[in-house]
């Protein structure tokens, strides 16, 4: 354990460099650069708000805020896990030639998406203020579901990164999995009807729904749901433990399969 910490300290600079590289290269050669992190969610929010606002007849003035909050969290989760899944194969060139602690690859992929997410939070703040959703002291508690989401992304990310080395098809399978996650997250609809029905478990057992729901509560200045918070936290911790174990058990074998 002590050796691991020393090793991480030695390679902390590489970790920073990898995160930096992810951010720098994502928007290289685009004119608006990192601004896309704000424009893109704003545009999707408008589309979703128009389509579902009219289709489902949601009248609420703050419906766009509701959508944006959900979508931001979902895309953070989907991008950071997809990044982690591909990370080992993507850095194949490096892995085959020099020794680097391998968890740096999935971890840096997740952290760089978090940094971009923090940038896109600016959009959420602006949209919320424009539509009259004012910040309250409870807004600051949003950091709690975001922390849970980080754990969840790391846990799932480590599992996917390991499995992705041995099963290339996982990348495509995970896309389908993410779609399922998305539809059971109540991103562009209000979950009340489903929560009141017999199939409420579809949402309640989805840890990402719990995270999104609690994040929204913070944004709208409401009280978080304790049960959901506990469930999503425990679920995330379990994935972190499983992820770390299977990753560290297999990392020495990666090089033989990529």
């Amino acid at each position: 354990m002590k050796a691991k910490i020393l090793e991480f300290r030695q390679y902390s600079n590489l970790f920073v460099e990898l995160v930096r590289k992810g951010i720098k290269l994502k928007y290289r050669r685009s004119y608006l650069g990192v601004l896309w992190s704000m424009i893109e969610p704003l545009l999707t929010m408008i589309v979703l708000a128009v389509v579902f606002g009219t289709l489902l007849g949601y009248e609420g003035k703050d419906f766009p805020v509701y959508i944006l909050a959900g979508r931001l969290i979902y895309s953070l989760f989907s991008q950071s896990t997809t990044n982690a899944l591909k990370s080992i194969r993507q850095n194949e060139g490096m892995i085959k030639k020099v020794y680097v602690p391998k968890y740096l690859y999935p971890l840096s992929g997740i952290v760089f998406n978090y940094v971009l997410f923090l940038i896109s939070l600016v959009v959420l703040a602006v949209v919320a203020l424009v539509l009259g959703v004012m910040p309250t002291p409870r807004t600051l508690l949003a950091i709690v579901p975001l922390f849970v989401l980080f754990l969840l992304s790391v846990g799932i990310g480590l599992i996917l990164a390991t499995a992705g080395v041995f099963f290339r098809d996982l990348e495509y399978l995970w896309n389908v999995g993410l779609m399922l996650v998305m539809y059971t997250c109540a991103i562009f609809y209000y979950p009340d009807n489903i929560l009141a029905s017999d199939v409420s478990w579809i949402l309640e057992f989805n840890p990402l729904f719990c995270v999104i729901s609690n994040f929204r509560s913070c944004v709208f200045g409401e009280v978080m749901d304790g049960g959901m918070l506990l469930y999503s936290f425990v679920f995330s911790m379990v994935t972190v433990v499983i992820g770390s174990v299977i990753f560290s058990k297999n990392e020495d074998k990666f090089i033989l399969y990529i």
Binding site: Y11, N13, L14, E17, K24, R28, M94, V100
Partner: peptide
């Protein structure tokens, strides 16, 4: 040059490869 990134410039790669070899910024 293990760890060189083709999209990165020479200067950026110096820092990246340095980090790969375990050096501080």
């Amino acid at each position: 040059g293990a760890g060189f990134d083709k999209q990165y410039t020479g200067a950026e790669n110096i820092f990246l490869y340095g980090a790969v070899l375990g050096h501080s910024r």
